[in-house]
């Protein structure tokens, strides 16, 4: 039963995506069923579009930097919330997950107003820190949920056996926390990789990302080209999480 249901959820989740892939080979102007022939027309058209390739590179760089910075910020914060008692904890915890409560349109414009007031031009650093703020809540939520399940006693035992706090973290907490940290990184990568609205406001003309391009294409191009781009993104990106999965397993077995 559970297995069947899970299978159905998968089918439901992937049918539209598979439809995108299939339709990207439809030579017709308006990719819809039934298929009429098979062609690489839209891919060829896409390959002439050098701005998309640049955007893709920007997206990858931005996503990776965001993932690293966001976990570097988020894990210590999660430790603080779960392992320590201090004043204003509830409030600060709410504050740190606030970015998901605020619609990105608002956040986008808000940050711009501030930057304009500071009289600073936009830059890649701004975009990056902005994305870190956007993704931080996810890292926090995931890491906290996991940290709750790791008993404090393990750490205390290590400390009482003479390990310093850093060693304790490295030998005890980190391995236990690794799945959550990994999940947090993947999450922040994908959120950053996927973000449209905030990036729309924060990115300069030189560091546009793929979703922003697609958002623009919605207005300016025909759908099969978007399908083709979707297919390319699927193929290129599918390999990345699989690689990550492989590395994490090696990492896990190597502990």
């Amino acid at each position: 039963m559970i297995r069947l249901f899970t299978l159905l959820v998968y089918v439901w989740m992937f049918t539209p995506i598979i439809a995108v892939i299939i339709l990207s080979f439809n030579p017709q102007q308006f990719g819809s069923f039934p298929m009429e022939g098979f062609s690489f027309k839209w891919f060829v058209k896409l390959s002439h579009n050098s701005t998309i390739l640049d955007a893709f590179k920007n997206s990858l760089v931005l996503g990776s930097c965001t993932a690293v910075l966001s976990t570097a910020f988020g894990v210590p914060a999660a430790m603080a919330f779960i392992r320590y008692e201090f004043r204003g904890k509830q409030f600060l915890n709410t504050l740190l997950i606030a970015p998901i409560m605020i619609p990105e349109v608002v956040l986008g414009v808000a940050l711009l107003l501030f930057i304009r007031w500071l009289q600073q031009p936009k830059s890649f650093a701004l975009l990056l820190i902005g994305h870190v703020v956007l993704t931080l809540p996810y890292v926090l939520l995931i890491v906290q949920a996991r940290l709750v399940g790791i008993k404090k006693e393990y750490e205390e035992a290590a400390l009482s056996l003479g390990a310093n706090p850093f060693q304790t973290f490295k030998e005890i907490t980190f391995p236990l926390l690794a799945p959550a940290i990994f999940a947090g990184m993947l999450f922040s990568f994908t959120i950053s990789f996927d973000d449209v609205t905030a990036t729309l406001f924060w990115a300069t003309a030189q560091n546009q990302t793929v979703p922003v391009k697609i958002f623009g294409m919605l207005r300016n191009s025909v759908s099969p080209e978007i399908n083709a781009l979707g297919t390319v993104m699927i193929i290129l990106t599918v390999s990345t999480p699989f690689l990550a999965g492989y590395l994490s397993r090696r990492f896990a077995s190597g502990k």
Binding site: L113, Q119, V212, F215, G216, R219
Partner: peptide, 24 residues
């Protein structure tokens, strides 16, 4: 540098919010 905008209104918003005004 040829950039594509995502829409007339969004572009005006970006210009209005940029510093120096229109500088970018």
């Amino acid at each position: 540098i040829d950039a594509a905008f995502t829409g007339m209104a969004a572009f005006l918003t970006q210009v209005k919010a940029s510093y120096p005004p229109g500088g970018e």
